[in-house]
């Protein structure tokens, strides 16, 4: 790589960008997404709020969300970071490999939720440990291939390294019996994967559905 120094993303941008990739949410999830302490996340949120980039939402699902100015600032700084690191080519190449894995991941999530028995597609009620183990074994196989993609991303931009930890963590908890960590919880493999997908699209400035 031409640029010997890979940048470390500033904490305020980490929080801003995590909020962009996870949608409206609270400090607990942002802490998981960024690896920062929850109290540090809160203090960054308050500063970002003062700058008019994020806003607190009240009501039945309290949390924080980006303002229009926050979205614009996020795109500008994330793109700036990508270009400064000279990482566009590497991230684009990794994204293309991600896209090969993405339909298989969605197949696997669907197989986790729905199961065809006697030709009838129904909800997987998780009463058959052998079936669940088979699906999780395929998740692990996919995860090994995803790990290679994550490693390429982290080499290009260290902030992507967090996804590897979160994906591995989700799969580990699912394997030890916390089944909600496959598709259901806000820290599930599917949720983290979808956030990585969103992050790649935003970072590269690509539409989700090219026309």
């Amino acid at each position: 790589m031409n640029h010997s120094e890979t940048p470390t993303t500033d904490a305020d941008l980490l929080v801003l960008h995590a909020l962009r990739c996870t949608g409206a949410t609270g400090p607990a999830r942002l802490s998981l997404a960024t690896g920062l302490d929850e109290s540090d996340v809160e203090s960054e949120l308050i500063d970002l709020g003062v700058a008019g980039l994020v806003t607190r939402i009240s009501g039945p699902m309290p949390g924080w969300s980006l303002t229009d100015a926050g979205r614009a600032a996020d795109i500008e700084r994330i793109t700036g970071e990508l270009e400064a690191a000279g990482a566009r080519a590497a991230v684009t190449a990794a994204y293309e490999r991600f896209l090969v894995l993405n339909p298989e991941l969605l197949d696997l999530c669907t197989a986790w939720q729905l199961r065809t028995v006697d030709g009838v597609a129904g909800v997987n009620d998780h009463s058959d440990p052998a079936y669940d183990a088979r699906v999780l074994e395929r998740f692990a196989d996919l995860d090994r291939r995803a790990a290679a993609v994550c490693a390429e991303l982290a080499a290009a931009l260290p902030r992507f390294g967090r996804y590897r930890d979160r994906l591995a963590g989700a799969l580990g908890r699912a394997a030890s019996g916390e089944l909600e960590y496959v598709t259901d919880s806000t820290a599930s493999y599917h949720t983290v994967w979808a956030e990585l997908h969103e992050d790649l699209l935003i970072t590269l400035g690509m539409p989700r559905w090219p026309r």
Partner: peptide
């Protein structure tokens, strides 16, 4: 049109 993580709180509601 489609959903992304950005829609999660809307999906929840």
């Amino acid at each position: 049109p489609e959903t992304s993580p950005d829609d999660m709180h809307g999906l929840a509601a």
